[in-house]
Amino acid sequence: MSDPQITTAENGPYLVAGDVPLSRREPIVSEHGEPLTWRTDASIETKDRYALCRCGMSDNKPFCDGTHAREGFDGTESAPTDSYDDRRKQYPGTGIDVYDDRGTCVHAGFCGNQASNVWKMSGTTDDTIVRAQVMAMIERCPSGALTFEVDGEVIEPDLPVGVTVVTDGPLWVTGGVRVERADGAPMETRNRVTLCRCGASANKPLCDGSHNDVGFTG
Results as ranks from 00 to 15, higher is better:
Ser122Arg: 11
Phe216Lys: 06
Phe148Arg: 02
Arg39Cys: 00
Gly66Met: 02
Asn191Arg: 11
Ile129Met: 12
Asp59Thr: 13
Asn203Pro: 10
Ala182Leu: 13
Arg190His: 09
Val134Met: 06
Gln5Phe: 13
Thr217Lys: 13
Asp151Ser: 15
Glu34Phe: 07
Arg192Ser: 14
Arg87Phe: 05
Asn191Glu: 10
Ala79Asp: 01
Pro27Lys: 14
Glu188His: 10
Thr94Trp: 13
Gly33Asp: 04
Gly93Met: 12
Ser2Lys: 12
Cys111Asp: 11
Thr147Ser: 13
Pro80Val: 12
Ala136Ile: 02
His68Ile: 01
Cys55Leu: 05
Val20Asn: 08
Val130Tyr: 10
Gly103Tyr: 09
Trp38Pro: 03
Gly75Lys: 07
Ala200Val: 01
Glu180Gln: 09
Val179Ser: 08
Ser30Ala: 09
Thr7Lys: 15
Leu52Gly: 01
Val130Lys: 07
Ser58Val: 06
Val98Arg: 08
Arg181Glu: 02
Pro186Ser: 05
Ala9Asn: 08
Gly112Met: 08
Asp65Thr: 10
His32Val: 11
Gln114Ala: 15
Gly123Lys: 15
Gly175Glu: 04
Gly175Tyr: 15
Ala202Leu: 07
Thr94Phe: 14
Arg131Asn: 02
Thr46Leu: 08
Thr46Cys: 07
Pro4Ser: 11
Asp65His: 12
Gly215Val: 02
Cys207Glu: 05
Val134Asn: 01
Lys61Pro: 01
Thr174Phe: 08
Val134Leu: 09
Pro186Leu: 09
Thr37Gln: 10
Asp48Asn: 05
Ala69Met: 03
Phe216Ser: 05
Gly103Val: 08
Pro157Asp: 10
Phe110His: 14
Met1Arg: 13
Phe73Cys: 02
Val16Ala: 01
Leu171Ile: 06
Ser116Glu: 02
Gly215Asn: 04
Pro157Thr: 13
Val177Phe: 14
Arg39Gly: 00
Lys120Thr: 12
Met121Phe: 09
Pro35Asn: 11
Trp119His: 12
Pro62Ser: 15
Val214Ala: 02
Gly66Ile: 03
Tyr91Ser: 11
Ala69His: 00
Cys141His: 11
Arg197Ile: 00
Pro142Phe: 06
Arg87Asn: 03
Leu15Gly: 01
Ser122Met: 13
Arg190Thr: 15
Gly93Thr: 07
Gly95Phe: 14
Val130Ile: 14
Val163Arg: 12
Arg102Phe: 06
Gly95Ala: 09
Leu36His: 04
Gly184Leu: 11
Ala202Ile: 00
Ala51Trp: 02
Gly95Pro: 05
Arg87Gly: 03
Gly162Met: 10
Pro13Val: 02
Thr67Trp: 00
Ala115Asp: 11
Glu149Gly: 02
Pro21Lys: 14
Thr104Ser: 15
Cys53Trp: 06
Gly72Val: 03
Lys204Ser: 01
Asp19Phe: 05
Val179Ala: 03
Cys196Gln: 10
Arg178Met: 09
Ala9Gln: 12
Ala132Lys: 11
Tyr91Ile: 09
